[in-house]
Design a protein around this nucleic acid. Structure first.
Lengths: 186, 186
DNA sequence: GTCTATATGTGGATAGAC
DNA sequence: GTCTATCCACATATAGAC
C-alpha cells in the first residue's frame, strides 16, 4: 500500500488517500497511522496538528499539479494542451465519480468556515486557473482568457461534484466530450 | 434567528444553516439544539440519528428547489427561465463564495464514502438537471438537452466551489455573465 | 413532548520510555 | 526518531423525570 521509505512522506500519502475517500473530518489520525505504518504518537513528530497534515496534502497536490501541467506544456499547441487537461478528468472518471475530485473536494471542505486552512484551499485552484489562462492567451483569447479559464476549471470541478452526487461516471465522460468540442471550436 | 413554531421544522432550519456554514461533520447536535432553541435530548424525539437530520435537510432543499423552479416556470420562455436560474447564483454570490452552494457542498460531503446518505445526495442534482433539461428541450435542443443541462448544472456547482476556495465572490459574477451569454447564443 | 443528567465511545493530543 | 500508554475534551446517543 504505502511504499515510501521516508516516513513523513508515507504519512502524507496515506492521509491523502484516506482523506480523498472519506473526507478530512471523518478520517482519524489512528487510521492514517495504520495506513502509513507509523505509530499514532509518531505522527506528532512529523506534524504538530491534524490541520498541518491537511496543509501538507494541499502542498503536495499543488506540486503534483505543477508537474502534471509542466508535462502538458511539451505538447505542440495550446489547444491540445487544454484538451489534455480535460482528458485527465475523463481518465479519472471512475475514481472521481466515487470520491470526487481529489483537489476540489478537499478544497471545498477546507475552505468552509475555517480560519488558517481556508487560505490553503485557494492555491490548487489558482494553479489550475493560471495555467489554463496562459493557454487561452496563447490561443489568441488574451482579452477574455481569465473568463475562459474560470469557466473551464469551474466545469471540471462541477462535473466531479455532480457525478459524485449522482454516482455516475458516465456524466464525466459526457461533460468531457462537451468541453473538448468547446475547446476545438474556440 | 429561528422563528418557526413547529419545533421539528425549527431544528431542520437551524441545522441547515449551521451545516451550510460549518459542514455536516463539524456541526454538533449541541450547536443545533441551541440554535433551534430545543434541548439537546429533545432532538432525539424528532430525529433518531444525526444522519436523519441530514436527510431532512436534503428533503427540504429539494422541496425549496422544486418551489423555486416552479416559480420560474411562469416566465414566458425557456431562455429567460434558464437565465433566471443563473441569476439565482449571481444573487447569492456572497454567501456562496463564503460557504459554498448550500446544495452542492452538502451533497459533496454526503456522497463521499457513506452508505445510505449517498443516495440522498443525488436527489437535488436530479431536480436541477431535469428542470434544466426540460428548458433546453423547449428551446429546441431536444437532441442534446441532457448534455446541455449537465454542462449548466456542472458550471453552477463548479463556480460555487471555485469561488469558495478562492474566497472571491466576483468570480461568480463573471461566470454568471459567461453563462448568460452562452444561453442567449444557444 | 420537553427537559436534565448521564452513559459510552472515540478523537486529537501529550508524556515519557526506549 | 519511534514507540506504548494515557489524558482529556467532547460528540452522539440514552435514560428517565416532569
Amino acid at each position: 500500500m504505502v511504499s515510501s521509505t521516508d516516513p513523513r512522506e508515507r504519512v502524507t500519502l496515506a492521509a491523502a488517500k484516506l482523506i480523498h475517500k472519506q473526507g478530512f473530518a471523518r478520517t482519524t489520525l489512528a487510521e492514517i497511522a495504520v495506513a502509513a505504518k507509523v505509530a499514532l504518537g509518531s505522527l506528532y513528530y512529523y506534524f504538530h496538528t491534524k490541520d498541518e497534515i491537511a496543509a501538507a496534502i494541499v502542498a503536495k497536490r499543488v506540486g503534483d499539479l505543477d508537474q502534471m501541467l509542466l508535462k502538458k506544456n511539451t505538447l505542440p499547441d495550446a489547444r491540445s494542451r487544454l484538451e489534455a487537461l480535460v482528458q485527465v478528468w475523463a481518465d479519472d472518471r471512475n475514481i472521481d465519480a466515487r470520491y470526487g475530485c481529489p483537489i476540489g473536494s478537499l478544497c471545498y471542505e477546507l475552505a468552509k468556515g475555517r480560519g488558517p486552512l481556508s487560505g490553503h484551499a485557494a492555491m490548487p485552484m489558482r494553479t489550475l486557473l493560471n495555467w489554463s489562462e496562459a493557454q487561452f492567451c496563447a490561443l489568441g483569447h488574451s482579452q477574455d482568457a481569465a473568463t475562459l479559464a474560470l469557466h473551464l476549471v469551474s466545469a471540471l470541478q462541477g462535473i466531479s461534484l455532480v457525478a459524485n452526487s449522482l454516482g455516475d461516471a458516465a456524466a464525466i465522460t459526457r461533460e468531457s466530450s462537451y468541453l473538448q468540442d468547446w475547446i476545438r471550436q474556440l
